[in-house]
C-alpha cells in the first residue's frame, strides 16, 4: 500500500467482481503529474473493467481511487477517458463535437466554440471545424476525439486502446503526436493497450496485468527515461525490455 502518496492520480487495492466472481484483484497504480503509465495485458484480463472503475463509471467492490489527494472513488467526470471508438456524433460538425464537454457544463455555445477553435491548429485539425465526421480520416477522427477529451479540462486522461483501430503507419504517427500533445496540454496519461511496443515507446512505467482474476504481476520502469530519441525502438535496451515483458505475459 502507498502511504502519503504524492502521485497526482492513484488507486489502492481495487477489487471488482461480477456476480461474485472477481475480475480484477488488488490493483494499485500510481500516475505522477505529467507522467505516462501503461497498463498492458492480454484480452479479457479485465483492463476495461478496471478502466470503468478508475473513470468512476462503476464502483469498485474494494479499494479507493484518488485524484490530487481527494477520494474520487465512483465519481465520474473527474478524469477524462477515451475509447477505441471515437464516438464522434455524425450529426454535429467537428467543432460542435469537440465543444460537447463545455456545453454539458453549461457554457454558452458561442464562447465554447471560440475556446475550442484555438486548439484546432495544435491538433492538426485546422480547416475542419465545419466538416462533419464522415469527411475525416480515421487518424483525424481520433485527433478530434482526443481534442474533445482535452476540452473537459481534466488533467488526467485514461485512454483505452485509442489507436488500435488505425492502420500501423497512422498508429505510429498518432503515438508520437500524442506524446507531444500530452506534454503541451500538461496532462497525465493512463494508457491501456495490448501492444508491447506501443507501451514501451510511450510510457514511463509499464504495469502488466495478468491472470484470472487480473492482478498486477510486474511493474517495469522503462529505461531510459523520457524523452527518448528516435532510435529507441531499435535499441538493445528496447529489445531486452520487450523480451522481458513478453516472457512476463506468456508465463502465466
Amino acid at each position: 500500500m502507498f502511504t502519503n502518496n504524492t502521485a497526482q492520480f492513484y488507486c489502492e487495492g481495487i477489487v471488482k467482481e461480477y456476480y461474485e466472481v472477481p475480475v480484477v484483484q488488488d490493483i494499485s497504480l500510481e500516475l505522477p503529474e505529467g507522467g505516462f503509465i501503461s497498463l498492458l495485458g492480454p484480452s479479457g484480463v479485465g483492463k476495461t473493467t478496471l478502466f470503468n472503475v478508475l473513470s468512476g463509471v462503476e464502483k469498485p467492490d474494494g479499494g479507493r481511487v484518488y485524484l490530487n489527494g481527494e477520494d474520487i472513488t465512483g465519481v465520474s467526470g473527474k478524469v477524462s477517458y477515451m475509447l477505441q471508438k471515437d464516438l464522434l456524433l455524425e450529426y454535429r460538425t467537428v467543432l460542435d463535437n469537440v465543444i460537447l464537454p463545455l456545453l454539458i457544463r453549461g457554457e454558452k455555445k458561442k464562447a465554447a466554440r471560440e475556446q475550442a477553435a484555438c486548439f484546432f491548429p495544435i491538433f492538426g485539425l485546422t480547416g475542419y471545424e465545419k466538416k462533419y465526421p464522415y469527411e475525416l480520416s480515421g487518424g483525424m477522427r481520433q485527433r478530434a476525439a482526443l481534442l474533445r477529451t482535452c476540452m473537459t479540462h481534466n488533467s488526467v486522461i485514461l485512454l483505452d486502446e485509442p489507436f488500435s483501430a488505425l492502420d500501423a503507419i497512422t498508429r505510429r504517427k498518432m503515438q508520437a503526436w500524442y506524446a507531444e500533445i500530452a506534454e503541451q496540454m500538461k496532462v497525465s496519461t493512463l494508457f491501456i493497450t495490448h501492444d508491447v511496443e506501443e507501451a514501451l515507446i510511450l510510457s514511463d512505467t509499464v504495469y502488466i496485468l495478468n491472470g484470472k482474476p487480473g492482478k498486477i504481476t510486474n511493474k517495469i520502469e522503462v529505461i531510459p527515461p523520457r524523452p527518448r530519441d528516435r532510435d529507441f525502438p531499435v535499441s538493445n535496451e528496447f529489445a531486452q525490455q520487450k523480451r522481458f515483458i513478453l516472457e512476463a505475459i506468456g508465463d502465466k
Partner: peptide, 14 residues
Amino acid sequence: DNDALRMLQSMGAK
C-alpha cells in the same frame, strides 16, 4: 448508441 450515452454521462450530462 449506448457508448455515446455513456460518454456524455461521464462528462456529467443530465
